[in-house]
Design a protein around this nucleic acid. Structure first.
Length: 396
DNA sequence: TCTGGGGTCCTAGGACCC
DNA sequence: TCTGGGGTCCTAGGACCC
């Protein structure tokens, strides 16, 4: 049976959601109608564009560029801070509403999802009007607009939702690939980024159609197996399923750009301790253990590197994580000035396999686990600043 | 006041084993 | 004065996504 997939994508999600909230609070301007962006805090060196209004886009403002660059293009630009709690709330409300129409919903990011409409007993014409209905209802209910792409697989649905924005429904069925997708520049193809597109253009392949019609062995020579993936996507081929179960994390990470580049080891250790506290709680909230701990760093000249360590048994307490982190820090860091430092936990598992006989330590561990649990509960109840490691006290 | 933060997947090379 | 070959696991780095 031919599948029917929707891809639903919030238009300028962070900016739209902030706009809705501001209007609700009595703010007189709808920031979607002026040159505006959601941007990080420049004084903390996080000043990049996270989302832009259509007007800002007209000035050439793009996502992820610095606010400094964005202002050069658009001097009247208004900048608003992000509010991640709001975004998570809006996101889950939207997904909850969409799941009324099909249980087959895959959250693809905070503001996008795929919905499998195959076998939902809607006829073809009904499905298209259903897409319009969902789009309009989301606007009426929540006050922000979405694009909906409709196709025979996830890739085509995703490509379709990207066509013309905002507030539109587009189809990209198998028989429309040639007309609607092949004329597009190669950069528009999902998973073709800067590096890949440069290589493709050097090979004389400038449109998605160029890639679709080249012999795939040419792409394999340049890109190995990724070449076949590109060729398949260019031809609108994608067998992947809509996966509605929330998949378990493969890794959890946290990182911070420092206020100032630093080679002060005490300062860096304090930052790491704070990060351990946050990521450790996240790990335990997900009821997971980790057996690979890594430090990620970005130097003052923007070179990034990482160092990881595999552990003999899975851990989940702040103490154990911080121990590992420090060991890695001394091995990895050559006391260069650091711009950004973070921690990544990988090889996550549900359960710790207990090795009571081998490690007497496990009794101690059980105790410290209970202490950790108690601390987490207090922090959940009263906020995370209520209890801090002693070394964080009286320090900025 | 240049360049965020959180993820996934892939690959190459080295270690180690049989 | 030769330097197998297959398999697995681990690590670091890179590309891409939102």
């Amino acid at each position: 049976m031919e599948r029917i997939i929707f891809h639903i994508d919030v238009n300028n999600a962070f900016l739209s959601w902030t706009a809705v909230k501001l209007l609700k609070e009595g703010y007189k301007v709808d920031i979607r109608t002026i040159p505006s962006v959601i941007g990080g805090d420049e004084s903390k060196r996080r000043g990049v564009v996270l989302a832009k209004s259509p007007v800002a886009k007209k000035y050439g403002v793009v996502s992820a560029e610095t606010l400094y660059q964005a202002r050069k293009k658009c001097p009247d630009l208004q900048v608003f801070p992000p509010d991640y709690y709001l975004y998570m709330e809006m996101s889950s409300k939207m997904f909850e509403y969409i799941s009324k129409y099909s249980p087959g919903i895959e959250k693809f990011s905070i503001d996008e999802c795929f919905v499998d409409m195959t076998g939902t007993n809607y006829l073809y014409d009904d499905l298209l009007s259903l897409a319009y209905k969902i789009k309009d209802e989301i606007y009426e209910k929540f006050g922000f607009t979405v694009n909906i792409g409709v196709g025979n697989n996830k890739l085509c649905a995703k490509m379709a939702s990207d066509f013309e924005k905002p507030n539109k429904v587009h189809t990209l069925f198998n028989n429309e690939i040639k007309d609607k997708m092949w004329p597009l520049p190669i950069e528009d193809l999902f998973m073709v980024g800067k590096k890949t597109s440069m290589k493709l253009r050097k090979m004389g392949l400038n449109t998605i159609g160029d890639v679709a019609n080249v012999n795939p062995s040419i792409l394999m020579k340049e890109f190995k197996s990724f070449g076949v993936d590109i060729w398949n996507r260019a031809n609108g081929i994608d067998d992947s399923e809509v996966i509605s179960e929330v998949s378990e994390n493969k890794s959890i990470s946290i990182s911070r750009t420092l206020i100032k580049d630093s080679d002060d080891i005490d300062y860096i250790k304090r930052i790491l301790l704070k990060e351990v506290d946050e990521i450790g709680r996240e790990l335990r909230r997900k009821k997971l253990f980790t057996s690979v701990v890594a430090i990620t760093m970005k130097t003052h000249d923007f070179v990034s590197y990482s160092k990881q360590m595999s552990l003999d048994y899975p851990i989940n307490s702040n103490d154990d994580i911080y121990d590992a982190v420090l060991k890695i820090l001394y091995k990895a860091w050559d006391f260069e000035k650091i711009r950004n430092i973070g921690i990544r936990l990988a090889n996550l598992s549900d359960k710790r396999f207990v090795q009571n006989d081998l490690f007497e330590k496990s009794n101690v561990s059980n105790n410290s686990e209970k202490v950790q649990e108690a601390i987490d509960k207090i922090k959940d109840k009263y906020g995370s600043s209520i209890i801090n490691p002693a070394s964080l006290l009286n320090k900025k």
